[in-house]
């Protein structure tokens, strides 16, 4: 449900950056979405369709990169790929983990003219 507000934030951020670059059009933008970020990519796609209307990126194409999550086991230090918060370390079966990657939602780049 929060994806529309995320989409609105993305468009605001693109507009701010386009203004800084004195660009009138944004042709393309790229977003990184970690799988543990709490953002549903399909819902974000849907929300972006609406959010870009009447903005500097109304005609832009976008790419959403799904970023896999990596965790470091607190018990044995093993770094492994995780799909969720509750899976144990494959090496020592410990649950404690530090998420190294996969919680981010960021505007990676814009292509302007």
């Amino acid at each position: 449900m929060h994806e529309l507000s995320i989409a609105v934030n993305i468009v605001e951020m693109i507009e701010d950056n386009a203004e800084k670059e004195k660009a009138h059009n944004v042709d393309k933008f790229e977003i990184d979405v970690g799988i543990l970020s709490g953002v549903v990519i399909d819902a974000l796609e849907f929300a972006l369709e609406e959010a870009v209307k009447n903005s500097v990126c109304s005609k832009a194409v976008w790419k959403i990169n799904k970023i896999e999550a990596k965790a470091k086991c607190r018990k044995c230090g093993h770094v492994y790929i995780v799909d969720d918060y509750f899976s144990p370390c494959p090496k020592c079966t410990g649950f404690g983990k530090e998420i190294l990657q996969g919680k981010e939602i960021q505007l990676k780049s814009i292509t302007v003219e």
């Binding site: 995320i6 934030n9 993305i10 951020m13 950056n17 670059e21 042709d27 393309k28 977003i31 981010e104 939602i105 960021q106 505007l107 990676k108 780049s109 814009i110 292509t111 302007v112 003219e113």
Partner: peptide, 11 residues
Amino acid sequence: SREIVIEQNIL
């Protein structure tokens, strides 16, 4: 046309 790297957290 040019690509600008932003890398800003949306939140």
